[in-house]
Design a protein around this nucleic acid. Sequence first.
DNA 1: ACCTGAACACCGTTCAAGT
DNA 2: ACCTGAACACCGTTCAAGT
Lengths: 214, 214
Amino acid sequence: MNTNNAAVSHSKNSTAARRKPRQARAQKRHDQILDITAELLDSVGIDGITTISIAKELNISVGSLYHYYPNKVAILCALASRWLNEMTRTISAVDENIAEHSDIASYVKVYTHKIIAMYKRQRGILPLVQAMYAIPEVRQLDEQHDLLMLARLANAFKHFGCKANKTELERIARIYHETTYICSMAIVDQQGRKASRSEADLNQMLNALLANYF
Amino acid sequence: MNTNNAAVSHSKNSTAARRKPRQARAQKRHDQILDITAELLDSVGIDGITTISIAKELNISVGSLYHYYPNKVAILCALASRWLNEMTRTISAVDENIAEHSDIASYVKVYTHKIIAMYKRQRGILPLVQAMYAIPEVRQLDEQHDLLMLARLANAFKHFGCKANKTELERIARIYHETTYICSMAIVDQQGRKASRSEADLNQMLNALLANYF
DNA sequence: ACCTGAACACCGTTCAAGT
DNA sequence: ACCTGAACACCGTTCAAGT
């Protein structure tokens, strides 16, 4: 009794969707399942969700539900993945327009602003994502997503003439990313009041972090 | 089906320990239960823990276990509480010696260092705390703990002559606290390599945050 | 008085039987 | 072929019966 195996007999083999969505109809069902799951997550919380309740809401049987996803974790994973992809897409836009910025400070400002705006828009689902964070598979997804963002950041820093080597670049990007993430969450939490001031404070911290390396 | 009730019939009335530990023997049992739970958390993960496994490890029956704690969540809560208190105690020491510091920068440096050292010492249990974070009661405990730390920080800032009003003080303390927390986690994660440099970067960010208010 | 563990209520997952 | 939902395996919690 010493290795980290969940030791449950329930099948958790794959967390991927079961049938490839060749037909538009099947894809629609997959999406519907995620929509319903998101709604239930909101109304009954992550502990209140049951596979039967999801199936019932869709007017299909549990067995049918298991045609689309191999298990409950897979459904939650797919939902998390959809959210993460949405975020990535939003932020990618900043990077694609990197030519717009003449210096790093300008980039930092827009980057911060976009992230906060996005978190604000998704205010309702943030606690849900947080609740799902307990699921190891979701955590892994999030880490992959982070790696992508870190690579982007490191690239942008180099583009603006950062004088750090590769290892250092990775390290700074990590601190930059984590700081932006946690402060954006805090800013979104504090319901509008003085949020612009907080955003300025975050920018100041980020610029101070980068100052030594430019 | 719209309010956020867990809707389970399991009794979750109180999360406090059941019998007041009047006798030293009962207190010892309470501690033993938490010790065993921490061990199991480490070996089988939070999803692998069962009340029966805890009882078995203690050589008592499940029924007996329920004499000491009203339910499984209460046990995990008590464990989290023990950890949080340990942390609070460690950090309180910095505040009690506030007179040692002539300026805010000196305070920031020691504060950062103590926090990182503490996280390093608890490296093993940090992922466990993170896993427990999914439990709403644990989250609440953590928030209470945070409020305490924030009050401390705001006080210290004022002591060193911070020119911010009460609302602003709270806001800055929050950003300070969150940034320290997330960066310390990141620093501890990166296994020693270049950690001292990261610590310097964190300090620089914190000082930049405070600069406008002193 | 105190402890035990079978029994009950749930929920995730499967698969034999229906269409 | 596809869907159904009773059945099975688990786990948290209780409480009648034992000491």
